[in-house]
Amino acid sequence: MFTILAEHGSALLSGLGYTLAASLMALLGSLVIGTAFALFEISHRKWLRIIGRIYVEVVRNIPLLVIALGFYVIVPRYVMPMDGFTAGTIGLTIYTSAFIAETVRAGIESVAVGQMEGARSVGLTYTQAMVQIIFPQAIKIVVPPLGNQFINLVKNSSVLAFVAGFDLMYEGKIVANATFSTFDTYLAVGLLYLVLTMPLSYLMRYLEKHWVSA
């Protein structure tokens, strides 16, 4: 394994960089899109609720690989040119956003109805009540399950390997094919994933401990 790291370290590290980049972008993107669809799902407008529901149910029930390949194969053919890294990252973002939407929706709904009524009864608007009262309470509820989603996201980014995304898994595959040391290569790849996910895992634990319980 150390030979692999010594001889092909730069390739694997470059893959790690792509994985990190894809993960960070997908994390931010899926958080924004997921929260937006969570708000759709709890909207008092029926058509927004329907849109939210359809999005979540369709996206979360299709395999990530299919979504990523969809962006890699279909979009370049009919819409616009797109490289594997972009297609994979968008696919990852969309896929994860459906799960984040459900997590955020559940968090918001677990804040007691009375909190919203208390806020509305002094004349706060829906948005003001959400920002001032509901979100701050929902965030604390949502942090632990969101941590799970983020860790899954980093690991799921290995889907980029299937769409030529230059990520860690992709580079690992190339190294394994070149050296025939499959076992050692994937051991090294696994270790490098841990380098990304363990700190994330501990960050989430830290947030849970020092912020959620406060």
């Binding site: 007691a112 009375g114 909190q115 009524e117 208390g118 009864s121 001032q132 009262i133 309470q137």
Partner: peptide
């Protein structure tokens, strides 16, 4: 309200 509905945060 019966259950106060004070803002918990």
């Amino acid at each position: 309200f019966q259950h106060f509905n004070l803002y918990a945060n």
